[in-house]
Amino acid sequence: MKESELITIDHLTKVYPTGTGGFKALKDINLTFQSGEFSGVVGPSGSGKTTLLNIIGTLDNPTEGKASVLGRSVNDLSSKEAARLRNHHIGFIFQTYNLLSVYTVYENVEFPLLLLDYSSDKREKMVMDALNWVNLADKKNFRPSQLSGGESQRVAIARAIVKKPELILADEPTANLDAKNSYLILEIMEKMNQELGTTFIFATHDDKVMKSLKRTISLEDGRVAGDDLAKA
């Protein structure tokens, strides 16, 4: 793996066990992602976008082939090692925000830092920095139920970036948002990519997101149907 290569995927296949033998979600995928990319995996529903992101995010394992993230082989990670890798180096943004409903905005953003065992002062500074990035510092004491969809997704972004991870995986981050909010959060993520050098990989079929991507990988029926490296 070259030094700048953040992720390498080599002949990756993912099969989910079913009653009739198994469902092949990914078939012989070969990809590499460089550090600092702003890429997207696009394709229709069921094409394997989320599965690919889950494997890159160490939430799932390949059935065949290899995946290496930040120099670590996903295949060989124990659940504890995978959890630590996610905790230290990977941020997630989900379509449905997945905020912890009983926590305040501040506590949601602080959560990954608690797992990293940072001091209270350090946590406070990092949380406020992240909330300032997404322009939600004034709503730090709000509960998720008191926020709009756009605000909730901005909190999710703040939670993903607060530990300054090398990689952020965003699964349909704009699917539940209107155009205005979609552009707003895309703007934030582009800015983070440019200013912090954070690598973003999206799974999306939203045109607004696709337009902003520097690299587009098309998936169809679990196979790579196209890889637009030219924009990268």
Partner: peptide
Amino acid sequence: RKEIGTLVALGMTQKE
């Protein structure tokens, strides 16, 4: 369920 999945995604093991 969603909370459990989110906690795992954020860096907790399922045992934790």
